[in-house]
Design a protein around this nucleic acid. Structure first.
Lengths: 255, 255
DNA sequence: CGCGCATTTGAGGACTGTCAACTTCCGTGG
DNA sequence: CCACGGAAGTTGACAGTCCTCAAATGCGCG
């Protein structure tokens, strides 16, 4: 691991409250690997030997069935993924593919499991991480089953806005076809959804959005803290516990 | 806790490999409670103070938004639920409601968290349980996003068949409107889906099904071990590790 | 027996996916 | 610097799926 990556990995919910010794033992045998864009890191069903930590780039977790494919989540640095399979020493239920060139830290699964047994604080950290991932998936399912495509897009935009500083000028972090897959629709449909949102004050120029009528967009989207994981309120008026929960859930489906 | 419930609770993946002492400490302050049918145990957003263990009856976990409601999972004995919220000491993202009269063991959330810190084996057990719950949700999302209503029903029937002894005579464990909500469709649509499956050899008489052309049904359903958690192969030809993974995932969304 | 609820059936409409053609964008190579 | 090719994105026509509303039927329980 490069020295400037250490604090970034340590800052992960999974390592935040863990002792130096355990952190050193867990990451001791880890190795950093670079992958080009569009590389399949893991196929569904593959045995999982490593916990992956995305340090740079974007990774898509996907599911396939019957020649159809769907995007379950898109990860951005710094995120862990495939933790659930590592903890159970099981095979992967999701495939993983790089969207861009990526730097990924690979931590031995065996070392994760062993250190959980030796350091209860690390076991707790892993459990908390998994709990956060679980709750991210619950949000995803509610979003998927309860909202229409346009509603999902509207809420995606509002969430993105909140995460990137609440500015009314927003840059989409993914290609639109990738975004479409993430939102559970076809690229054609996403295009029409954007057109629909024009009536609610969303101007689209390429990958840049301008939100002109925030109130109207919110009235359509009806964001809900039990589905949408927006940025928490400012730190000084926020309880420590809330901060930790939010941090754990930040990674919407990393396990 | 009633004495005859102890072995049932101990047999849960969460307590299977835990010492007597820890088990006693965790469940020491637990209390058994009976609830009538159609009782809201937990509203979305409620603070969660207890881990719930369903010992008898059926519980539905639901999500709501904008006056719409969806069923996320239906739990049958013996299952834990709301574990993720307990581990993070967070509020509930799902509501919980009894479908039938239920016996539920309520374990103090604080005692769960405390014992995770004191017994690493318990921490591991919790992490493994959460990992299994997480993987159950991954399966649910893939099922939801990649399959049509008829395909979901066909696979539901095949999974139910596998779980109840591979007989061609099957009894539905839920009312059809409940099943419809679970499969993510309206009761009307479920009715039509059953009608569609008649052409594939599924005869429906009330809550009883007869599968006449298993091969045809399977050709339609295309069951997939990476989505459908069927019963594992017979114990004698199965590795111990597989058995544990299956046990952990048995509860599809209990966290 | 009769009421109430679950289930079924039918008609119509909203939403979403598919296919095809077109436009735009962008990097490559001349 | 411009032309070109390919991929991404858009648009239109159409079909399939799913939902909504309404009415009819069936079933269980008081």
């Amino acid at each position: 691991m490069r020295s400037h990556d250490v604090p970034r990995v340590r800052a992960l919910p999974m390592f935040m409250n863990v002792s130096e010794e355990t952190f050193a033992r867990v990451t001791g045998a880890a190795h950093l690997q670079k992958f080009p864009a569009n590389t399949q890191l893991l196929l569904e069903g593959d045995n999982v030997d490593f916990l992956y930590v995305l340090l740079d780039g974007q990774v898509e977790l996907q599911g396939t069935w019957n020649d159809k494919e769907t995007t379950l989540t898109i990860l951005r640095p710094v995120s862990t993924f495939i933790l659930a399979a590592v903890v159970l020493d099981a095979n992967a239920l999701m495939g993983a593919r790089t969207i861009e060139r990526c730097d990924i830290l690979m931590i031995s699964g065996h070392s994760i499991r062993q250190n959980m047994a030796e350091d209860p604080l690390f076991g707790i950290a892993v459990a908390r991480e998994l709990a956060g991932c679980y709750r991210g998936l619950v949000r995803t399912i509610k979003n998927q089953k309860l909202r229409s495509g346009v509603e999902r897009l509207a809420n995606y935009i509002l969430t993105l806005r909140a995460k990137t500083g609440a500015s009314d000028l927003i840059h989409l972090p993914h290609e639109k076809r990738v975004l479409a897959a993430l939102l559970g629709m076809t690229p054609e449909n996403l295009s029409r959804a954007f057109a629909t949102l024009q009536a609610y004050g969303v101007d689209v120029i390429g990958a840049d959005l301008r939100i002109c009528k925030l109130r109207d967009l919110e009235r359509l989207a009806k964001p809900d803290p039990l589905i949408d994981n927006h940025a928490p309120p400012a730190p000084d008026i926020r309880a420590e516990a809330d901060a930790e929960i939010w941090a754990a859930e930040r990674i919407r489906a990393g396990g």
